[in-house]
């Protein structure tokens, strides 16, 4: 069965397109509104009724990275460059680690079923379903004892474990989907298990691995609770600083907040489009494929 896109039953014409377009735009309006506001001058941002046609400006995006923090002071770097780097670096390294460890486990769960596998898989999924706030309580204490709070090592280790259950279940679902005939034939011809894995199974799931990677990166990029409690000034990630920014100022700086949110969500929205075919599998941790 084709897995290429979110499938449909039958067809409808442009009439349906019109209805769907109106509803989709209303649904997407909160995102659109923020993106538009990000390009508005201070006056346009506060205008009512909402202006949809205006002269766009990038001032807000500049002030995400450079702005005056005190009245009449000089513009200073806000540190958001570092925070974006942190989000990418911490996300990238932890997802890569989780994917390597996870793929090996996923292959074993899929190809060498053992007694007790169900229990392990359940345990792995439970660690993921666990409320983050429950998991964080002991980890917070242990991180303090071992001096891991605010370090890259600490948060990367934590995110690796955070991404691992997702990687195992996702990648396993891709291995489960493969047609076994080819590898069985290779085994009959005397190929080693390593060769079967490396030359036959792995190449067939490259696309799946890529989807898992991107998905896990999004999850990590979006994560807030762990980052709030376990990162320091040097390792802070974007969502933590966004929440600090809106909580800290007296009045809301609409343009600035919108620009921040826009920079934070645009990558996710774009990547979601590329992932459309794997969304169902991704959001259910590979438990539902069709």
């Amino acid at each position: 069965m084709s897995q290429r896109e979110v499938r449909s039953i039958g067809t409808a014409g442009w009439g349906r397109t019109l209805t769907a377009a109106i509803i989709s735009l209303i649904y997407f309006f909160p995102v659109l509104f923020i993106i538009l506001t990000a390009f508005k001058s201070r006056q346009d941002a506060l205008a009512w009724p909402v202006k949809f046609i205006f002269t766009p400006t990038v001032t807000n995006f500049v002030s995400v990275f450079y702005r005056t923090t005190v009245e009449g002071g000089e513009a200073e770097a806000t540190g958001f460059g570092l925070y974006f780097f942190n989000s990418l670096f911490i996300g990238g390294s932890s997802v890569l680690l989780a994917l390597i460890i996870g793929t090996s486990a996923a292959y074993a769960f899929s190809r060498f079923p053992l007694k007790g596998n169900e229990t392990y898989l359940f345990m792995i999924l439970t660690t993921r379903m666990m409320p983050p706030i429950v998991a964080i309580i002991p980890i917070f204490v242990l991180f303090r004892i071992f001096g891991l709070s605010g370090t890259y090592v600490g948060i990367i280790a934590l995110y690796t474990a955070f991404n691992l259950p997702f990687s195992v279940w996702m990648v396993k679902s891709f291995f489960d989907d493969l047609d076994r005939d080819i590898e069985d034939a290779a085994r009959m011809d005397g190929s080693s298990e390593w060769k079967v894995f490396r030359k036959i199974c792995l190449p067939q799931v490259y696309a799946g691995l890529a989807a898992t990677f991107v998905f896990a990166i999004i999850l990590t990029w979006n994560e807030f609770v762990f980052a709030l409690l376990l990162t320091g000034t040097q390792t802070r990630t974007v969502p933590v600083q966004i929440v600090r920014t809106i909580g800290g100022s007296m009045g809301v700086d609409w343009g600035l907040m919108s620009a921040l949110e826009t920079l934070f969500i645009i990558p996710v929205v774009l990547v979601t489009f590329a992932l459309q075919n794997q969304l169902l599998r991704g959001v259910t941790f590979g438990t539902i494929r069709r």
Partner: peptide
Amino acid sequence: AREFPLRRYLLMLVLAPMMLS
């Protein structure tokens, strides 16, 4: 549920919120 012109793109607008932080 049915296929119609531009469905793929409109679907993206609706699906985007759940991928956000």
